[in-house]
Design a protein around this nucleic acid. Structure first.
Length: 469
DNA sequence: CTATGGCACGGATT
DNA sequence: AATCCGTGCCATAG
């Protein structure tokens, strides 16, 4: 991806900048590939052994200081602790495939999904269970449904059925909710259950999914209304709810597109590039921000290589020097990149502290442009750094880094809250007033748009819903 | 007549 | 320069 390092003799500034930029845009996983290939292609680069902190045995990226242990024990620290966290083991490699049974090499279309899900649930599983989970996840089709029945899974893997079921439940609750179900019906029910915990669900939805899915897809509302002895209106409302909020094929839904029910965008599943958590998981302690560096050691220019140059004869020397230049440029760029990331994250995290801790409502609308001024870098630098990266929040949710710059998330979240709380259904224009009271000035039309984004039904359809709990 | 969704325009953001 | 987002106007459904 970075071929412009051909002539690196002198133009330190431009080449330097260009490469730093391209490195900034990379996710942790991509960065690892980049480094791997750089390392393989350049003998002057060297990966020095990992250094660990003597007390907490954390791998260090900077020689000497351990970011965690050097935190002074003042608990009420408002400032986040930001540091590079070299941890190779965090980058899932492709070897999650079960070695024992190689009958099916890989689900070709879905290589991203299994690792993504596994990452979420792995912490909660025992070691043997992880293997089972991995096995099940490799048997998903491109829609995120299980291709093998649970019984078969149990027979193949020699796990008791009860364990298999337990793991399946864990998988289903993971991010593309419903993933790992054996049928679309099951997936829908799981999603419904999940929605129930957060919001309102039409009372009929569950029945309809269980028995009436066929008629439902053929829009036989009259027939259904008759069968359940309810007005057709209710059926339609429930149907609409199902259509807009649930996804028969979990792999096609993802955080980003809960907004666009119909749009079947091919979502890429990210693993986090940045981890945010509390020190020792203790909300009293300061926030710890780990920028994942996909390395177990530190990159540097091989000192032996420098020596080798001196001893080399004339013509070899030119080539070697080229390599050396390239290597040192790469190291510099990498450092620069990391430095920028650190500064960026420091600023963003302390700005959005409330959001990170308390949730969407507290997101402050910050633009990339503002931040670029504060950090004195070009806007495009921020854009690149923010794009395509995802962050794991203390509550284990994984969100795109770009969501820290969502200009309307807070309003939408308050809007959602209003609608969920108030028993009476407000029309859009009433909602405008409510929002204005709380300090958000938006147009009526915009409220409608936000509703659509959040998948909230219009007032007259909401009226027939019941509150779920 | 009221509440909403569609289209499209202008300004901000990237 | 391309894209995204909020908004106004208008048609349509209830």
């Amino acid at each position: 991806m970075i071929q412009q390092t051909r002539q690196v003799q002198k133009p330190l500034t431009t080449a330097h900048l260009a490469q730093t930029m391209s490195l900034l845009a990379l996710t942790a996983e991509e960065l690892r590939q980049q480094i791997d290939s750089e390392l393989a292609g350049n003998p002057a680069l060297e990966l020095v052994e990992e250094r660990r902190c003597p007390t907490c045995h954390r791998i260090l990226s900077d020689p000497g200081k351990c970011p965690i242990c050097s935190i002074p024990s003042n608990p009420a620290n408002e400032e986040p602790v930001v540091f590079l966290s070299p941890r190779e083991e965090f980058i899932p490699r492709k070897d999650y495939v079960d070695n024992e049974m190689e009958d099916e090499p890989f689900a070709p279309a879905a290589e991203e999904l299994p690792t993504y899900v596994l990452r979420q649930i792995a912490p909660d599983l025992k070691k043997e269970e992880r293997g089972l989970a991995a096995f099940m996840l490799t048997h998903l089709d491109e829609d995120g449904l299980l291709t093998t029945s649970l019984i078969e899974v149990a027979r193949y893997t020699h796990f008791p059925l009860s364990v298999v079921e337990k793991i399946q439940r864990a998988i289903q609750m993971a991010d593309p909710v419903g993933v790992g179900s054996v049928s679309t019906t099951e997936a829908l029910l799981v999603q419904l259950q999940a929605l129930r915990e957060t919001g309102v669900v039409p009372e009929l939805a569950e029945e309809l999914i269980k028995d009436g899915l066929d008629d439902l897809s053929h829009h036989q509302y009259a027939e259904l209304a008759h069968r359940y002895h309810v007005p057709q209106k209710k059926i339609i409302a429930a149907a609409k709810f199902i259509a807009e909020n649930l996804y028969p094929f979990p792999a096609r839904s993802h955080w980003g597109d809960a907004r666009q029910p119909a749009a079947q965008t091919t979502q890429v599943y990210h693993q986090p590039d940045i981890l945010i958590g509390f020190l020792n998981e203790d909300p009293e302690k300061p926030l710890v921000v780990e920028i994942i560096m996909p390395l177990s050691g530190t990159l540097q220019v091989n000192p032996l290589f420098k020596q080798a140059i001196r001893q080399a004869d004339e013509d070899a020397r030119v080539d070697l020097r080229k390599d050396l230049e390239k290597a040192s440029l790469f190291v510099k760029c990498l450092q620069q990149r990391n430095h920028t990331m650190e500064r960026l994250l420091t600023r963003v995290v302390s700005l959005q502290r409330e959001y990170i801790i308390k949730g969407d409502k507290y997101l402050k609308p910050v633009t990339r442009a503002q931040l670029s001024k504060e950090l004195e870098v070009h806007e495009s630098t921020i854009s690149r750094a923010v794009a395509n990266k995802s962050v794991q929040l203390p509550n284990k949710r994984i969100v795109p880094l770009a969501s820290f710059f969502d200009r309307s998330l807070n309003v939408r979240s308050v809007l959602k809250e209003i609608i969920e709380k108030e028993p009476k259904t407000y029309s859009d224009s009433e909602l405008v007033d409510m929002l204005t009271e709380r300090g958000f000035q938006v147009a009526r039309r915009t409220v409608a748009k936000y509703r659509a984004i959040e998948g909230i039904l219009p007032a007259h359809l909401r009226r027939v819903t019941i509150k779920g709990k």
